[in-house]
Design a binder for these strands. Structure first.
Lengths: 207, 207
DNA sequence: GTGATCTGGCAAGCGCGGTTGCCAGTATCT
DNA sequence: AGATACTGGCAACCGCGCTTGCCAGATCAC
C-alpha cells in the first residue's frame, strides 16, 4: 500500500535499462551470434549452446526469446533482408528519374549490400533453404517483395502478354544465380561484371 | 587344385545374381529409398535407420555402400540430374536445326522432366543446399554442365562483350527461380507459362 | 548331405545436444 | 540495511540416432 510504487513489477531498472530494453538487448546479442555462427559454420553445425556461448548469455535467455534454433535463423534472415532492402530502396530513390539509371543503381546496391555481408549472404542463399516449411514460406514472402519492387519500377513496361510476377521471379532468380556463383566460385571477379550481366538480362524485360 | 573353380570367391551366385550384381541391386534400393525420404520428409528429418527400413535392408548394407547420409544424398542427386539431362539432350537433338525450336524444346523438356519428378526436384532445389561444402561443389559442377550446354547451343550468339559463362549462369538461375516458385506456390499454373517466360528472357541473350 | 557363405533382424553401447532446475553473486528499490 | 529481482554458470536428466556386433535362418557349392 505505502507509496504507490511505479506501476507493477515491469518497470524496475537494471544496469540503467528497463526490462524491455534488456530483453531487446539480449535479442540483438542472439541475432548477432546467429549471424556469426550460421553464416560461418552453417546451420546444421551450430548448437544452441554454441550460440549462447557466443552471445555471452545463459541458455535460459535463449528460450526466453526463441522457441529453438530454427526460429532464430528466421529472425537472423529477416533482419538481414530488411537491411539489404533498405539499402536498395534508398539507392533507387536517389538515382533520379531515368529508369535505366534507377535500374542500374538498384542492382548495384543489391549486389554490393549482399556481397559485403558474406555471412548474411550465406544465411540467405545456403542455410535458409530446405530447413522447414515455415522458413521456405518466409523466403517466398521475401521473393514476393522483390518481385513487387521490380514490377513497380518497370511500371508496365513488362510485355503485356507476360505474367508480371513470373517475369520478376525469373529476374530475381537470375540475380540469385549469379550471387551464388560468385559466393561459391572465384571471388576475384569484379562485381561490376555481375551488374552488367544482369542489366543485359533485365533490360529487354523491364523495358 | 582339384577342378579349377570359377576364379576365386567373388563369383558365387545367390538368388541367381553374382556378388557385384547384388551389391548394385542394394545400391539401387538405397537410392530409391533416399529419393523417397529425402524427397518427402527432407534430408534433416531422414535417418539412416529409416532409409534402411524403406529399402528393406540391414544397416550393415548401408555402410557397405555409403559412408553416411550425406553421401547417399549426393548419389541420389547425381542420378536425378543425369536422368533430367539425358531427357533434355534428347529433346534438343530431336528438334531439328532451327535454334529457336531447339531452345523451346530443351526448355520444355527440362521443365517437364523436373516437375514430373517432384521428389527429385525437392532434392535438387531444397535438400541439396547448404548441407556441406562437398555437396555444394557437386551442385556447382552440375551448374557448369548446364552452362556449357546453353553456351554450346547459342553458338556464339551471346553478346561478344558478355562473359558467356556468366550469362548462362544467370539464365539457369532464372529457370531455377521459376521452378522453385512453382514447387512452393500454386501448382495449378500451366507449365507452358514457365516456358514462355523463360523464352522471353533467354531470347535476347542467346540470340 | 555337409559346410561355407550370405542375409536380415535384434539390440546395446556410445556420443551429442536439447532442455530444465538449482544456486550463489549482484544490482536495485524501499 | 533488508528485501526483492535479475543474472550467469553449473550440471544433470533425457531422448535420439549412429554404429557395430552377434545370431538364427536361408541359400548355394561340392
Amino acid at each position: 500500500m505505502a507509496s504507490t510504487r511505479q506501476a507493477g513489477s515491469g518497470e524496475r531498472r537494471y544496469g540503467g535499462r528497463t526490462a524491455a530494453e534488456r530483453r531487446a538487448q539480449r535479442r540483438e546479442q542472439l541475432l548477432d551470434a546467429g549471424l556469426a555462427l550460421f553464416g560461418t559454420d552453417g546451420y546444421a553445425a551450430t548448437t544452441i549452446e554454441g550460440l549462447c556461448a557466443r552471445a555471452g548469455l545463459n541458455p535460459r535467455y535463449f528460450y526466453e526469446q526463441f522457441a529453438g534454433r530454427e526460429q532464430l535463423l528466421g529472425a537472423v534472415y529477416e533482419r538481414h533482408v530488411e537491411q539489404v532492402l533498405a539499402v536498395v530502396r534508398r539507392a533507387i530513390d536517389g538515382a533520379g528519374d531515368d529508369r535505366a539509371a534507377r535500374l542500374r543503381a538498384g542492382l548495384l546496391a543489391f549486389v554490393g549490400a549482399t556481397l559485403d555481408d558474406e555471412r548474411g549472404a550465406r544465411v540467405n542463399y545456403f542455410e535458409m533453404i530446405g530447413v522447414s516449411r515455415e522458413l521456405d514460406a518466409l523466403r517466398r514472402r521475401v521473393l514476393g517483395d522483390y518481385a513487387e519492387l521490380i514490377a513497380s519500377q518497370s511500371a508496365g513496361a513488362l510485355g503485356a502478354d507476360l505474367d508480371t510476377r513470373m517475369a520478376a521471379v525469373a529476374l530475381v532468380g537470375a540475380t540469385d544465380g549469379l550471387i551464388i556463383d560468385w559466393l561459391s566460385g572465384d571471388r576475384e571477379r569484379p562485381r561490376e561484371t555481375i551488374v552488367d550481366t544482369l542489366l543485359t538480362i533485365f533490360g529487354p524485360v523491364v523495358g
